[in-house]
Design a protein around this nucleic acid. Structure first.
Length: 397
DNA sequence: CCAGACGTTGTT
DNA sequence: GTCTGG
DNA sequence: CCAGACGTTGTT
DNA sequence: GTCTGG
């Protein structure tokens, strides 16, 4: 699925991402574009579509399809059809007629997905490893709701989830990952959709958890995509992961026996990515998705062996983290940061943000004041038990 | 013929 | 607008 | 998609 | 839980 995204791209970035190089495409309504780290249905976004004469145009439309047959007196609902299942677009009344002649491309830096964790939801930001824009397959329509006004809207196609992201969701947007798929979608209405409208399986899609504060559409700015540290999930009696020390001693990690996850982990280990905050991280997955070990972000660093950062360091880091609730049961040799109390910050401050020279005021969270969290001791025995389990699992395979 | 629907998610 | 259901 | 509200009476 | 608003 895809219901939130980051699009702070400027027009030329979008044109380039969609394969039109440095062409100066004609534009329409681009003055409505508001670059944002937190775009949701109902807001304007630039898309590239073909005109009647075959030329491409960069056209700013509202996300969330409002079909042309919508009643004139009806209130447009952009949330009903902000996605379209690619598997059924040729059958559904609202999309069928758009497939031949109303395709478009949507370029974004990344999108967000929420993972249900118990009763809470943890958002993740998904993007390309090299930060090139993602190009989504989309359909658009026009609704004449008055004599003078026409509302242009679009919907982003979805497909099954890639194996690498299965732990997070069962649906994902259709990502046109190369020029031939972009070309097939926008230029070849008669080509086979099956080769294009499929999950993006390449290993260059990365993700990491971000502040839950971005769930509010009023929350905007770079903090939306700032990585946060998550607490590892509550361990189960039989943990299906183990820790290991890398030869180069660079980081510590957990691993799963899941095929897709395994590959990803290996990839990450070989080419650890470096985030803005300079930390080196790996993404980890468990075969059994019910385990909820959605990610075990490990802070690289001069941290030692089984090394997980010390509790003290962890707290320090969190003090720099904005509003986030975190259960901490990080397995360290000595102690762990507990979780019962979570950090709550109040997102009421306003902050001016500058995106491509456009200054905008938006909601901003306050930095945690340092009252939390509390820390507590973990018995050495528990640690040993886990390691025993881990070892036995390892020797068995 | 007219009336009514036309969608996706996720969760149960 | 177009398709399904009655 | 997520977040936030979900109500009335009576008084100021 | 369900509906509305962004």
């Amino acid at each position: 699925m895809c219901g939130r995204a980051r699009c702070t791209l400027n027009p030329q970035d979008i044109i380039r991402a969609c394969g039109f190089g440095d062409a100066a495409l004609p534009t329409l309504h681009m003055d409505r574009h508001r670059p944002s780290y937190n775009v949701s249905p109902g807001t304007y976004m630039p898309v590239i579509r073909r005109e009647e004469d075959g030329g491409a145009i960069l056209h700013c439309m509202k996300w969330g399809l409002v079909p042309s047959f919508t009643k004139k007196n009806e209130k447009p609902d952009h949330f009903r059809m902000f996605n379209a299942r690619s598997e059924s677009i040729c059958e559904k009344t609202s999309f069928r007629l758009l497939v031949p002649k109303s395709r478009c491309l949507v370029a974004v830096e990344g999108f967000y997905e929420w993972k249900k964790v118990g009763s809470k939801k943890q958002p993740y930001y998904i993007h390309f490893k090299d930060d090139r824009p993602l190009v989504f397959a989309a359909l658009y329509d026009s609704w004449r709701h008055s004599e003078a006004e026409i509302l242009h809207t679009f919907t982003i196609l979805t497909t099954g989830c890639s194996s690498a992201l299965q732990w997070l969701h069962d649906r994902m947007p259709v990502i046109l990952g190369n020029m031939s798929s972009i070309d097939a979608w926008i230029n070849c209405p008669s080509s086979n959709l099956g080769n294009v409208l499929k999950p993006y399986e390449d290993s260059d899609l990365f993700w990491y958890p971000v502040t839950p504060a971005m769930g509010r559409t009023s929350f905007d700015g770079p903090d939306c995509i700032k990585e946060i540290q998550l607490k590892p999930a509550e361990p189960e009696p039989i943990l299906k992961f183990f820790t290991r020390k890398e030869p180069n001693d660079e980081f510590q990690f957990s691993i799963s026996s899941d095929k897709s996850g395994h590959e990803d982990i290996k990839e990450d280990l070989k080419k650890p990515r470096i985030e803005e905050n300079n930390s080196l991280l790996t993404e980890l997955q468990l075969q059994d998705s019910s385990h909820q070990v959605e990610a075990i972000p490990i802070v690289k660093k001069e941290t030692e062996v089984h090394g997980i950062k010390s509790a003290h360091e962890g707290i320090k880091e969190e003090l720099d983290e904005p509003k986030m609730k975190e259960k901490n049961e990080h397995l360290t040799e000595l102690e762990l940061v507990d979780d019962s109390d979570q950090i709550e910050a109040t997102p009421l401050a306003k902050k001016e943000v500058d995106i491509h020279g456009v200054k905008r005021e938006h909601e901003q969270f306050e930095v945690n004041d340092g009252l939390f969290p509390k820390k507590k001791r973990m018995s050495t025995k528990n640690v040993e038990d886990k390691q025993t389990t881990i070892l036995s699992y390892f020797t068995k395979h």
